[in-house]
Simulated assay, not measured.
Amino acid sequence: MDFRSTVERAQRLKELHAGHRPLVLPTVWDAWSARTAVAAGFPALTVGSHPLADSRGAEDHEGQTFEEVLAAIRPIVAAVDVPVSVDLESGYGRTPADLVAGLVEAGGVGLNVEDTVHGEGGRLRGTEEHAAYVAGLRAAADDAGVPVWVNGRTDLFLRAEKPADVLDEAVERLLALERAGADSVYPVGIQDDDELLTAVIGAVGVPVNSTAHPVRHDLERFRRLGVGRISYGPLLQFALADSMKAMIAPWAP
């Protein structure tokens, strides 16, 4: 993909976030799933690390190298004419500049980055440490001349025995990401908790991303709560696996 097309797709992704509340980005993992989602009417997509890894026989949590991820997303981007964002986990040990350069070269125009550092035993980045990484991504995208959409994720709720107990710390992390230049923030693990979602949405000034199950969750509920962006994580792939098993089980010996 040429540079001008990449810039245009990045600008389109930004416009879509402004025009939709919430913007639903189906989480895809290959050219087939990407084409299927676009045929269903979606104007933008995201590639999830978990379903991508599963589709390639690899492990999530950076079980693939950055080069392998880029090789996998190129045909996805080429298969559709809509913007594609990519879950880049915690960055594969790469500098922000390297991460943005690789993403843009592959045609990706958005990214998700989390604070669990898989290459270092799964430790959680500190608040300012993660914010600094996101600031580096923002600066690298600006230097590249591509308005890459940066979705800053925290796994703090996911790690807590009682998610409500870490609300204040999580909000502090998300506000730090917003100040660092994140276009949206992603507090993973609270998609079923109206109170926590409402508290987070009320505390930050950028769209809040929530995970959703395409069958078990209700879009209108997320809209009513004020969620700005929705992705499926691995849940779309899980739902399709359940459907596939139900369809073919009667044919098994």
Rank of each mutant, 00 (worst) to 15 (best):
T65N: 12
G91D: 01
G119L: 14
V134D: 04
A176Y: 03
A141G: 13
E62F: 00
S243C: 12
A180F: 09
V204K: 07
E220I: 10
A34N: 06
A31Q: 09
P75I: 09
A72L: 05
A37P: 14
A239H: 09
G93S: 02
V28N: 05
T65Q: 07
K14Q: 11
T95C: 12
E8F: 04
R173M: 08
A18F: 08
G228E: 00
V109R: 00
W149K: 09
H20E: 09
A53L: 03
V47W: 01
G226M: 03
S210R: 09
G57L: 10
D168E: 14
V166W: 08
A203W: 08
A97H: 07
E105A: 15
L177Y: 10
T27G: 10
T36C: 13
D81H: 11
G107W: 00
T46S: 02
G228L: 06
W251N: 10
I230R: 00
G226E: 01
E178R: 06
P26R: 11
A203C: 07
A34E: 05
L13A: 09
P43T: 03
Y186D: 05
G136N: 05
M247S: 13
H50I: 14
A34M: 08
A212G: 06
A176N: 05
G48K: 01
G122N: 05
D87Q: 01
V104I: 12
A78E: 05
D54K: 11
W29T: 09
D168T: 15
T6K: 05
